[in-house]
Structures are given as C-alpha cells and as structure tokens.
Amino acid sequence: MKIGLYFGTFNPIHIGHLIIANHMAEYSDLEQVWMVVTPHNPLKQKNTLLDDYQRLHLVRLATEDYPKIKPSDIEFKLPQPNYTVNTLAHLMEKYPKHQFSLIMGEDNLKSLHKWKNYEYILEHHDIYIYPRVSEEADNFQFKDHPRIHWIDAPIVEISSTFIRENIKNKKNVRPLLPDSVWAYVDHNNFYKK
C-alpha cells in the first residue's frame, strides 16, 4: 500500500489540514494519508502546545469520517529529538509491505537540503508537494527531481497559530475547525489563556 505521511504538530488540526490530506488521498496515487502527530520536543519551551495525546485525540476526532486518512502516533515512541529519516526507517521496518512517501508544502521543500540524510530520503521515498501562496516554484533546488510530485491541491492559508490566537481573543473560529474538534477544544477550554 502506498502511504503518504503528513507530519505536523496539529495544534489544533483544522479544516486546511483535512483539505490537503483528503486531496492527496483522492487525487494522487496515494492510497492512504497518515497524519503523523509530532511530539513535543522536551528541549523546547512551548506553552501553547497541547499535550501530545490531546493533539492525537483531536486528529482522531477530525479524521474518523475519512477512511483514507489515519492518525499516527508513531513518533511518540521514538527518541527525541527525532528526524524524518529515522521515522521512515522505523516505519519501513514495522510495515515492510507499505511504501512510504512524504507530503509537504512548497515552503518545506526549500529547506529539504538541510534535513538529516535528505539524499537518502530523496533516493528512497517520493515527496508530494502542495502549493503555498507565497512560493515561487522557480527557486526550488529539487523542482524537477523524479521523486518530487507536484500536486495541484487547493491553496489553504489557515494556520493553527491564527486559530489559537483568536480563541484566546474570544473570536469565533468555529468554521475553521471540524465540528468534533471545535466541540472538544471549546469544552476543554483549550487555548483560552
């Protein structure tokens, strides 16, 4: 099975994440998309970052009606700080019959050359790129690499930071979150302080 890995803190997961994940699952050759929740780096102070399992629960709530999109806590069990190349190695060992690819925005592709063992990743894994508003595709070192697949997904400019700040400022951000995620966030008073 061909799996696309969509990494993020998902703090919180919002409709933009779902639009991208669903587009990849429906309009590319990926058979499933796994939303890989990035654990809190113990070396970083992040007061606004919800507990790892709370964020995983939000991803579960958001994806329960999408059979091709699955939440993943695979990085919770790996040593920190973690690198994508280590996660890929762990997944290939655990699921040898699956083929794993990465899903990322154009903005992340610009810094791919700074990733640990990026040459290995490019040699062994496809990367599916979705567009971002502010990016110029001509600037990309790997633009024409055979493992890079440009997917004409909708451009979604919604950020978790915007959502958190506006919950704190008592603005209504409900349309930006799946209903089940909004209900859970609101019930638990997340991001209000």
Rank of each mutant, 00 (worst) to 15 (best):
I129F: 13
N86C: 00
S72R: 05
A89K: 14
L50Y: 12
D138R: 07
V37Y: 01
D29T: 07
I74S: 14
E26H: 12
V36Y: 08
Y128N: 04
L109W: 08
N47S: 08
W34R: 08
Y66D: 06
V59P: 00
H57W: 02
T63K: 05
P42N: 10
I103C: 13
I129V: 15
I103Q: 05
T63L: 01
L50H: 10
Y130R: 02
M104E: 12
A89G: 03
Y83L: 04
M35R: 01
L56T: 03
L56W: 11
L112F: 13
Y118S: 06
L91T: 02
P39T: 06
Y95N: 03
S111Y: 09
I69K: 08
D29A: 10
S28Y: 01
L49S: 09
L58H: 14
H90G: 01
Q32L: 03
H23G: 07
P67Q: 08
E75V: 15
L43S: 06
F76I: 02
I103P: 00
T87G: 11
F100T: 05
R132N: 04
H23Y: 15
S111R: 11
V33T: 07
V36D: 04
H113R: 11
T48S: 12
N41S: 11
H40L: 11
H124C: 05
S28H: 02
Y95A: 01
S134H: 04
E64S: 11
P71L: 02
N86D: 13
I74C: 14
P71T: 03
V36T: 05
T84Y: 00
L50I: 10
